[in-house]
Write a protein that binds this DNA or RNA. Structure first.
Lengths: 120, 120
DNA sequence: GAAACATATGAGTTATTATTCATATGTTAT
DNA sequence: ATAACATATGAATAATAACTCATATGTTTC
């Protein structure tokens, strides 16, 4: 019953102890929530959103994406790497070129829900 | 027909002109994609993800959230402000306290799809 | 094997953002 | 009105991340 002197915040009395404890018990592991944030971080950048949207429409090679977005090949390549590491995109080599596409349905759903929220 | 000398990338020949033009025509406005990235940016931080998850479980006041996450009242309040501005959370005042809750179903869907992607 | 091309990547710089600290605002009780 | 408390917020600092530049890797053609 003496477990809150290490917390500086809410010095007075714990306001809703029952709720806090219940929700705390239900919370996913710290690590899972971290991974979740890392995943969404990838959606949280204009360049990557554009890349995902482009791939939403069609498989495309790095050079085409760069040209379409008016950005350097290097910048696109760096971002594709991040998306690839998170398994949000797949790639396939065809000669000198590498074609990227969306990896799975979650990406489409997440983008779609986001679009609905911002109001289409 | 002379529209590509301003682009430095892909100096040689445009690799898939037809695809690039088709996808370009289908792309949402720059502004919408920017808003979309801004929205997802809010999901892309551990603290905010935790807050959203906590509110996923139950409406809660600022002090409770701070205590649950072991963070300062100020830090939580700053993040709640960002979430509030994006209409991801609602709030309701009750005396000295302010209770926050999730604003709409999109948040739940987005979190759920994200969870599925990271593997639960 | 050398040249040309498409893509990938490490290092460095700059821009962005989360947190802390100090303090302001709003609410209740005395 | 004053004190006590819960929350909000501006400014400063520290941590993070996007882009550029230079260069490396992988592939094809000669």
């Amino acid at each position: 019953m003496e477990e809150r002197e290490e917390l500086e915040q809410c010095e007075t009395l714990q306001v809703h102890r029952d709720i806090v404890e219940k929700v705390d018990a239900e919370m996913p592991d710290e690590e899972i929530l971290y991974d979740l944030a890392e995943l969404f971080k990838l959606f949280g950048d204009s360049t990557r959103i554009k890349i995902l949207y482009v791939l939403f429409a069609s498989e495309m090679c790095v050079c085409d994406i760069a040209q379409l977005l008016g950005m350097s090949q290097s910048a696109i390549s760096h971002q594709l790497r991040a998306l690839k590491q998170a398994k949000l995109v797949r790639y396939r080599r065809e000669g000198k070129q590498v074609f990227y596409s969306l990896a799975d349905g979650h990406v489409r759903t997440i983008l779609g829900q986001g679009m609905e929220h911002v109001g289409e």
